[in-house]
Design a protein around this nucleic acid. Sequence first.
RNA 1: GAUCUGGUAGCUCAGUGGGUAUAGCAAUACACUUUUAAUGUAUGGGGCCUGGGUUCGAAUCCCAGCCGGAUCACCA
Length: 598
Amino acid sequence: MLSEQELLRRTKREELMRMGIDPYPAELFDFTHTTQHLRDAFAHKAARSPAGANTQGGYESHLDLSADPTYGQVRMAGRLMGFRIMGNASFAEVQDSAGRMQLYFRRDDLCPGDDKTMYNTVFKKLLDIGDIIGVEGHVFTTMTGELSLYVKQFKLLTKSLRPLPVVKEVVNEQTGEKEIYDAFTDPELRYRQRYVDLIVNPHVRETFIKRSKLVNSIRQYLTDKGYLEVETPILQPIHGGAAARPFVTHHNTLDMTLYLRIANELYLKRLIVGGYDGVFEFAKDFRNEGMDRTHNPEFTQVEFYVAYKDYNWMMDTIEEMVEKVAIDVTGTTKVTVGPNVIDFKRPWKRLTMFQAIQEFTGVDVSEMEEDSLRDVAESRGIKTDSSMGKSKLIDEIFGEACEPNLIQPTFITDYPVEMSPLTKKHRSKPGLVERFEAICNGKEIANAYSELNDPIDQRARFEEQLELARRGDDEAMAMDEDFLRALEYGMPPTAGVGLGIDRLAMIMTNQPSIQEVLFFPQMRPEKKSEVSTEADFVAAGVPVQWVLAVQQLGFMTVAQLQAANPNKLFNDLGGVRKKLKMSEVPMPKIEEVREWVG
RNA sequence: GAUCUGGUAGCUCAGUGGGUAUAGCAAUACACUUUUAAUGUAUGGGGCCUGGGUUCGAAUCCCAGCCGGAUCACCA
């Protein structure tokens, strides 16, 4: 059922059409300025001294640009976000992509002749908050120093049929801080209707602009180094490159199972085999696993692979790149995240995994066998079971003792070989691989290797994964014969990395949840409760005039009505008839009511 | 998956000895020619998430479910 306000807006839409005003005109609207342009252009007119600063808007008062060649005739477009109507003159707020600006409408300037319809009817009666309009006029400031547009003409560009949440913001005179009233904060509504969130919450729009800057910063860095941006398959016959459960789909023509990629690693390495020195891809990956504050089923990584390099080189590169990202996105290397200030300035701390464990637990686990490791884990409250081998136990201890405490960006290096089937064995440390993770704010943001390029060793590692799969590990990697074939032709020594864009965006924008850096985070579908239409009720025998009354009594579906007690319904209808002022509609007979119920 | 917590008007929310529901913004009407959370007066607007139960009577108490959020577990 439509709300009162929605019905009214639909009526206004019709009324406009009757007046010959198209609420959804086809032709373009050529605006000359945005709010950003104007604020920048008048920045030097901003009142700077506190002496004359009791101005609301912060600009010199009484600027009048009506004769100015540029600002005497300005066209702007945007969404109406508020009205202050005062008889024959009014103020309104328009919001465009950059922000808000005040509009001034004066009846006799808008309508110089006798016909005051455009002001009295179209502007005052038929426009609503949320409508999109184009305006033309000159720039001026009011007595209070608010930069404004003196509107001489306006044109409706889009009628909005749903009422928008109205968020009001006021600057506290004592503290000078902004206070927000009636903020639109319900996370469910914000995520399901992100468009509303973006209209009403400027800081949300800002977060996503920063995310875009972050991606651009990385793209620019990698492109400037001469690496090639590529695209590789999202639909893959074999999912590889990470340990995760995939989403499964089916191709009808080929009649085959395909997987949404969990990583693109193996394809990028094929391109290194093909002879490119460096390739990268911003990749949406899909993992069929749990969702929480840091996991969404689809997420973005940038993976890149560079020939003739190793993981030490990659650490230098990641440091340099992320430091640049921090500066490009936030203007500084020091980023506030929750209660912490994280400094991305190079160089970052580097610890081997064993060093990290020793630093946070005081225990040297580097020479330990499985039993001792199990004791260490148990002593720290980690639940263990017999299926957990050495490397799993080390990983658990690290995850419990170290990772959450690594707030400043830190490289953790040299992981146990069992957990890294695509990584080259360490050049000098047996049992370890040349791998690092970059940890920041207690969470992994990047994972990198000296890539394994010995095809015989790679095959053996895949075999181990198959063994794990046979024992029931549904995240074990699958054998990829084509990838092995590529390695057999020869892949140069290569360094590769995957960097989580969402996690990095959370840090750079100080957001506690991944949902805040994804426009449309995954949600359970909203379920509309079943409601019968007017036509359904009429079809069931209820006269049109009585449908509303029946709905008022709580019968939202025909089925509910048919389960009703006809005598009680008959009585209740009498009451509703009075309430709805239906005196001109005759009361139905009890027999008729019985027929509705059926 | 477990525990905790929430779901009342377009939005933000009040509402337990159980008695058809509060307020602000938004809306409608009138007034008001530089206001800025504009103001003043009046008015309208509700399947109290859904379904059961207890009761003469449920937004409120009980049970089950649906959809969020937080924490933990699992998972990278």
